[in-house]
Amino acid sequence: MAIEPIVEVRELSKVYLQGETNVVALNRVSVGIQAGEFVVLMGPSGSGKSTLLHLIAGIDRPTSGQVLVRGINVANLNESALAEWRNRNVGFVFQSFNLIPVLTAAENVELPLLLTSLSSRQRREHVAAALDLVGLTERAKHLPRQLSGGQEQRVAIARALVTDPLLVVADEPTGNLDSKSATDVLTILQSLSREANKTVIMVTHDPKAAAFGSRQLHLEKGEIVA
């Protein structure tokens, strides 16, 4: 008996109009992802990995098809409802760490919580817990430029986690890191899926990184091939 998937992608297509020709970034992709899975998206450059990730995370709109997350068709939400949905359900980690340079580590982590109704004390507790999870309690007051790349990426993970989202999406999170830092980051992502039962979806080119996942999907020319 198949468990009801938490993310269900149905016949998802994304077509870009480039001058006269259509660029098919994603071609009728269907896939189901269960809670607690650590899915790794692999494939050559331009195969549509980022596009799929963006569509699942609700920061891009499909040309056709559906993304259902816990039964909600993400593509049907309007701009502002979608923003709120992302705030509650998705944590983002990017290749370049994308922290706000004028905010300290703790403040960066706190950012998504400003949109919630939590009191400032509750926010501080959540931030402390998230920083503790990525092992950066000591660095809470540091600015991004006072942190190493690996530490910055761990702050970004803490920011992705602090709202306790359903999904964590990561686009080449180790692309800019040395192998030691990369291992730290991957270990954290792995433990999120194993211990906290979060659904993690990660794009990577690196087979060593892919080995941390529980399942691999290979894309080629906008289609899942394995």
Partner: peptide, 16 residues
Amino acid sequence: FRELAILKAIGFRRRE
């Protein structure tokens, strides 16, 4: 621009 895109991804709306 990039940071503002991140804020949007995190859930900040246009009006915010």
